[in-house]
């Protein structure tokens, strides 16, 4: 029982950065913008997040620095793709290279410095309830934040007028424009939200996971966040399931190894990726034609005034 609880705790922690980054990207993509630069924004968030906390001692300042860094990078992306109508795939890849390089330059200033990690919630009696207490009431603040974020995004997308407009921009930017909605401005805001989330997700790594910055420490998690959005077929509810599933597979394969199950570890490591491909195909097939895919995703929009 204790092992199960421990595994769940690890899964929650491992899934949180993926969930935060994917939530942001989901909103971005729902507005019709495909930003492949998540990895670059995340690593910048990690570097600036650690820098902020290291300089001020405050986790909140660090998280804000990470968000701002991610948002600034997404602004570059938005200027390119929305302002200048440049191809989104190419710009996203360029953003990743740029972010990795810049984070290395910024991070060089505090390599080897460590900070105190974000504290975990501790409510004297509920947290100490034997099973489930720590899972429900013993996480760091980011875990709760990530869940609040996805609930808020779900509410926003489906329960508010602004959310409806945002989805309309993603589904058919020509009609949305014809109806008088400022497509580009909405996409700009959605892209910036995605950038802030990616930055926050990156900042989570040094602030709550491993309290130091090392160049390249995101190690491909930005790409996984991108995959999760598709895996979830752009639905917030499924995104939570997807993120935790991915976190669970990557943690469980470590446990399987520790328990001495003799499958080559490369196959275990490949499992999450294979699972994503299979689920992607299965889901796409089940929903006949991909009705939840934003129809205008990744396409350039230039309003003809």
């Amino acid at each position: 029982m204790e092992l199960v609880e421990a595994i769940i705790l690890s899964v929650l922690a491992a899934s949180t950065p993926l969930l935060i980054a994917a939530t942001g990207e989901l909103v971005t993509e729902r507005s019709g913008v495909l930003n492949l630069g998540v990895e670059g924004m995340m690593i910048m968030g990690a570097a600036c997040g650690l820098g902020g906390t290291w300089l001020t001692g405050s986790i909140i300042v660090g998280a804000l620095c990470g968000m701002i860094a991610g948002m600034l990078l997404s602004l570059i992306f938005a200027t390119m793709t929305l302002g200048l109508a440049v191809n989104q795939v190419a710009t996203g890849l360029a953003l990743t290279i740029f972010g990795i390089g810049l984070s290395g330059l910024i991070g060089a200033g505090f390599v080897g410095e460590r900070i105190a990690t974000a504290p975990h919630l501790h409510l004297p009696s509920p947290t100490d309830v034997p099973f489930g207490g720590r899972i429900l009431f013993g996480q760091d603040g980011f875990v709760y934040l990530s869940l609040a974020l996805i609930v808020a995004v779900r509410w926003f997308l489906y329960r508010t007028r602004a959310g409806l407009v945002l989805r309309a921009c993603g589904d058919n930017h020509v009609s949305a424009h014809a109806l008088g909605y400022p497509v580009l401005r909405i996409r700009l805001l959605a892209t910036m939200f995605g950038g802030a989330c990616a930055g926050l997700a990156g900042a989570y790594l040094p602030l709550a996971y491993t309290p130091f910055f090392i160049p390249g420490m995101t190690a491909g998690r930005g790409w996984i966040a991108l995959a999760l959005v598709v895996f979830a077929s752009w639905l917030p509810g499924r995104l939570v399931i997807g993120a935790y599933l991915f976190g669970a597979v990557s943690i469980l394969q470590l446990h399987a190894q520790g328990a001495g199950i003799g499958i080559p570890s490369q196959f275990m490591s490949a499992l999450p990726y294979l699972a994503t491909v299979i689920v992607l195909v299965a889901l796409s097939r089940a929903r006949s034609g991909g009705s939840t895919t934003p129809a205008s995703l990744g396409t350039v929009f230039v309003p003809d005034r």
Binding site: V230, V281, R285
Partner: peptide, 24 residues
């Protein structure tokens, strides 16, 4: 084929298969 037959986003499936190839 995933794209043509099932409508699965080729951007993401082709990307995921990179990691599988690396580990193989």
């Amino acid at each position: 084929i995933g794209k043509v037959r099932f409508g699965a986003s080729e951007i993401l499936t082709s990307l995921m298969l990179v990691y599988v190839a690396e580990l193989f």
